[in-house]
Each structure stands twice: as C-alpha cells, then as structure tokens.
Design a protein around this nucleic acid. Structure first.
Lengths: 364, 364
DNA sequence: TCACGTTTGTTAGTATCCTTTACAAACAAC
DNA sequence: GTTGTTTGTAAAGGATACTAACAAACGTGA
C-alpha cells in the first residue's frame, strides 16, 4: 500500500484508455468515453497526449451512416514504438525478436548457446540483445526478457542452473549496456502473461510450460503470483503420487518434472512402441494429480499447456483434465478449461513484450 | 480495471493513514507523514477528517523530551465505532459478537441452530444479528458475516449444505432488515482475513479451517483469492494420494475432508487406543500431500491451521509440515511456516470484523 | 538568561486532474 | 431547409495534494 497522487490517477486512466484500445479496434473518443466511464473531455485530453507520444493514431472517419458528426476512429499506433523480446529458455538456443505494440513479430534473431554458462552465457545474451535492438526501426519502448530460473522483482536471476547463473543482476546489466528500459522475469511467468495479454484467457490462469524442465506461471486477479522467494510456479520439483507410501523421502524420480519434462517423455516414448498412448496418458494423469489440489484451492478456471504439441496435445492433455475433474469436487472443476496455448513457440517472446507493455504503459 | 478519480485517491490515502495508525500506536501527524510519504499538510487534513468522523482521536502530547514543538499523539478511536461479527460455521451454534475497531470483543451472543435449515435457519441468523446489534453501544460500522458454503462477491450464499441454503442473498436480506451495511463472506475466507489483519502473518498465506468439514482461505498479494465460481478454498473435496492407482474414480473416502474433518478424526481416534499418534501423523501426512503442490505452485510462505488444538497442534501439524517439505523442492519450502492460528475459536468473528473494516474503510 | 536551532502543525497559494457545461461542426431524417 | 443527434473541443469549477512559509513550543548552549 502506497500513497496515490493525482499523477498516478492520470497514469492509470491513460493505461485504461490504451488497454481499451488494445482490446477493441475502431473506437472513437466518444466510444472510449462510454467504455471507460471517463468523460469525453478527459478522454480527448488523454488521447491527445497518447497521439503526441505516438502510442495512438487517428485512423480516419467512421464509414457507417449515422446521424451526427462522424466519429474519428482511433487505433494503436503499431509503427510508433517497438519492443524487443528475448527468450532464454531454449535448450541450446537464445531467441530474440522485434515486436510491435500488438505483439506482431517483425524480425527475429537467434544465437546458439553451445553449452556456454556463467559470464560466457551472459555475454551471448548481451550480444543477442544488441543484435535484436539493431533490427528495430522505431523508438524502442523497452527490452523484455524471459529467463529460466528464479528471478526476483528487480530482475536479478537468483539461480538458473542451466545457464550457470547465481545472483546475476541481468536487468541492471542489460539496462546499463543497452541504454533502454529492461524488464527481466521468469520464462514461465512471461508465458503466463502472454496468455493473459494476447491469448484468449479470461480471469485467473495457470500456465504449465513443459520443456527441458517443467515450470508454471500463475495469474490471479490479473497479476502474476510471485511467492515469498519469487519461486512461485516451481511445480516441477514437487513430488506427485503416494505410490511409495506416505513416509518416503524426497525422490527426484517421482517429481512432476521426471514425469513430464520433454527429455523424460521422449526417452520413455522411444522404448514404448505401441504403448505410446499409455505413456502419454500416465504422464497426463500425473500432471492431473499434481494440479488437482491447486485447481481446487484456487478454484482455477483455466489451465494452459505450453510445449511440444505432438507430445502434449491430445491424450496427455485429455488425461490431465479428466484426472483433475475426477479428483476435485465436480462443482468447482466442472467448467475447468485445460488446453494448449494458441501462441505456439513464441509464447515467451510475446510474454517478454507484455512485460514491457505492462511495466512501461501499465497495460496488460 | 476501472477509472480513478481524485476522490478515489483521497479514499486510498485516508485508508493508508488509518492502516498505518492501526499497525503502530502512538504516532503524531508528522510521524504519519514520514511513514506514508504524504506531506504533513495532507496528513493533517486527512486526520482532521478522520477525527471528525470519530475514527481517530488525539491522545495528548508525547512525553519524551526532544527539541521542537511537542508532538500530538494519535490513536484509533476504539470507542468511536463498533462492528458486529457473525460466525455461522459452528456445528450447531450460531455465534455473534460486538467488536471494536481493534478487534477486541466487547460482547457476545449465541443461538443454537437445533437442526434448523432453510428459512428457519435464516430467521435464526437474522434474530442473532438483531440481538447482537442491540448490544452495541456506539455507531455501528457494519455487520460482517462468515458463512459456510460458497459465497459470491455480492454476499449471496450460493450453496451451504449444512444450512440447507441455495442462492440465499444473505447480504441484501440482512442489510435490508438491519439498516446497516452488511458484508457476507465464506467462513474460511473470513478466517484467512483475520489471520492477515489481526494475526502475525506476513505476505501470502493459506489458512486451513478444520471443523465439520475442511475449508481454506488464500491470501495472495494482500487480497483474498475468490476463484472463477467463488469456490476458492474448497480443498476439502479434493482427493489425496494415489493409493488406488491413477485410474480411480472420485471417491469421497479419499478426500482431504475424509482424512481431516473433526468427526472423521475423532471417530478414528476413538478406536485407535495407543495408536493415537499414528492416526494423527497419517492425517497430517495426507494434508501435507494435498498442500505440497499448492505450496510449490504459489511458493507459499505460511500455512496456518485453525480448529481443535488438541487434534491439530503437535503431531498432526508437524507431520504435515514435514511432508510438505519432503515433497517440495527444499529451496522453496525451506522457510515455510506451518503453525496453529493464535486467534483461537474467535477467528471467524475477527475475520467478519476485518470484512467490515476492509469494505468500509479500505483497511485490512 | 536569552538567542538559536529544531520539530510540529497549520495556512495560503499553486499545479494537476477530472468534471460539468456550453458550443461549433457535421451529418441524417423529414 | 429545418430539426435533432453525435462528436470533439473549450472554458470554468471543484477536488486533491504539493510547496512554501509561519507561529508555537521546546532544547541547547553561550
């Protein structure tokens, strides 16, 4: 809880106008006023400011024939600003992209990690950021980064085993180096933001990102859940099932990750032969067992999967959904939605863009 | 997301001042200014308003000897307003209380339910509310109600099996009948708010309320999680463990509630004899198995138990904590706190008061 | 003892923000 | 053409918090 000044209210209302315009195209100032509850005068003022800063532009007059003065339609000025997104979660490939304010990808860059860790990996990330930044053709709103590992609110990567990072203040380092605002967050959290901002998700949402490991991002009341140590979403390390009884010690072989990570899944599928569907169903069931208490406790409406479609979409997802339904009260999970993301492999890049949109414009 | 007007900012800052004063006693206007970041002038204005409304009062001058004009100390005006809290979650006893703004209980009322349901139960709740309201000796800020079952944001009890209620607009009915503001919420949610507002909890928190059933309330980022159908916290109906394999259908005998509800626990303890601790340990372990994914996904810092101390405190709680730790990555649960509430049996009454404080003053 | 610095709380003036009210422009319908 | 409607802007007003300045009240130290 912090004090609120007039300028904060202004920023909030500005974001409200922008967000409304992001969701619905082809609105006039008067439409925006009706939609937001602000008066036409205020909207006019805010829109004027936004046009001046090249976040909004006039599109011309409305075509349809109605009485009264014709409305001047507005739209997000896609060309006015660009965003750089980085996805550091690939197994061996660092990915970068230039995006516009709508989340359209305008250019791509990539850099193989080739096993680099520590300072070396950091240098490659910086290089990729610089190369991607060089491809921008409009003022850059900011650089968003989705990194594996635990990332705190200041954008310091506290631990990222794959990259060999411990307490790396990536956000500060990049900001200093690049001279533009930088926002760093966890990759699965970024993905969840992408699904919230650019996907069809409505309301609370959990995104499960299945790759080398298994991570997740949770959105509650429109905002990311960070957790006490910024480690929210680290569901991969949780043991699932009580096959060995209740007294067993922690066993890395019985965690969500050991059942569902891509290396583990593909490994078991290679030797499965005709039992392929069995392997996938069992994996989906394990995921369902792990998620059921979360779905129940949060009364989650939507769980979204991100990862290789050929593995997740179909038997696995169906088994997970059915298991969750079977293990929770029907009333609370009857209308639960569990589906693949519609954002594909670019979900973290899009999430990185949402990080910037959210951080710089208050829009999500 | 809604528009923000100057008056909203005002209300927010007013709540900020009040909350600061609730947490720390013996502050002057200048202290409040330093604490909140507002200027002395603004704080003076807000405090003047709050004194006028009898939410704050001047306590006299600060005693200690310092240079400068002596400070006028302020405190919450406990006697200025009172709150009525109702707890409908008892097995057969409806409980009411008059509380002051600090959460001190000034008077109690109660009414046996005697198996009433439906309209009859509703009449008894109304009667209890009227009787408790009659015991107040200062202006009433509002009536808070913690009800079992699923309660939506409008205070309509959508389903409450024990009371035989379906879609009962309790909040509206009581408000109309009593002529004061009424806020109705789920009992476990109210308890979680109490722990957040009056307990020692810091940050995110899950409260497990064990009674006839097992419910829970979740506080994330300082606010209650409601869930898609306002059924968040209904963890009692979730199945726990995979003893029967992954393909089993929903089985009421394997839910959290069947392991941990008071009737179930006492029943098994009666026949346990010397194996009493085994029963409690097993129950705690089951709770731990159910909570581990939630703790992992949210990186929860604190889990609080509410219910009969003689059952929960000790073996059961310890087993639950150890099981959660064993089943989640150590990093994320290493500093997890699992403890009994310090608020005792009045936790729902206190939570009802927090509902009112929060709803009417923006304070929590 | 008395000037000086410090702290508190208030007052006056200013800037910001949104609203209300009024109005011109532009169009459809009759 | 007249009327009514809708849009967008402009001017005035009210609310809010800030800055600057000040009086009151107290310690400190010469």
């Amino acid at each position: 809880m912090a004090k609120v000044l007039p300028e904060h209210a202004r920023r909030h209302n500005r974001a409200l106008v922008l967000q409304t315009l992001l969701r619905t195209e082809g609105l006039s100032r008067a439409d925006l006023a009706r939609e937001t509850g602000l008066t036409r005068a205020t909207v006019s003022d805010l829109v004027g400011e936004l046009i001046g800063e090249r976040f909004v532009r006039e599109l011309g007059q409305r075509e349809d024939s109605r009485p009264g003065k014709p409305a001047t339609l507005l739209e997000i000025d896609r060309g006015g600003h660009q965003i750089v997104g980085l996805d550091l979660s690939g197994h061996d490939l660092l990915r970068g992209a230039v995006l516009d304010l709508d989340g359209s990808i305008l250019a791509r860059e990539q850099l193989p990690l080739e096993g680099s860790t520590g300072e070396e990996a950091l240098a490659k990330v910086t290089l990729l950021a610089e190369r991607t930044l060089a491809r921008t053709t409009a003022p850059v709103l900011g650089v968003g980064v989705g990194s594996p590992g635990v990332v705190n609110l200041e954008g310091t990567v506290q631990t990222a085993p794959n990259l060999g990072w411990t307490r790396v203040p990536l956000q500060d380092l990049l900001a200093q180096r690049l001279g533009v605002p930088v926002i760093v967050s966890n990759d699965a959290n970024a993905a969840a933001l992408a699904e919230h901002g650019f996907g069809q998700a409505e309301g609370d949402l959990m995104l499960i990102k299945i790759g080398n490991g298994v991570g997740s991002g949770l959105i509650v009341s429109g905002a990311l859940v960070h957790g006490r140590r910024f480690a929210a979403g680290e569901i991969g390390q949780v043991m699932v099932g009580t096959d060995g009884g209740l007294d067993v010690e922690y066993d890395r072989g019985k965690t969500v990750e050991s059942w569902l990570s891509v290396p583990s899944l593909t490994g078991r599928l290679e030797t499965a032969g005709a039992l392929r569907d069995d392997v996938l169903r069992r994996a989906g069931q394990r995921l369902g067992v792990a998620l059921a208490p979360v779905v129940g406790a949060l009364n989650l409406g939507e769980v979204v999967l991100s990862g290789p479609e050929e593995l997740l979409d179909g038997v696995l997802a169906e088994a997970a959904l059915e298991t969750i339904r079977r293990r929770t009260m029907t009333d609370s999970s009857g209308d639960l939605l569990l589906r693949m993301t519609t954002l594909g492999d670019d979900i973290v890049l899009l999430g990185a863009a949402v990080l910037v949109l959210s951080g710089r414009l208050g829009v999500s």
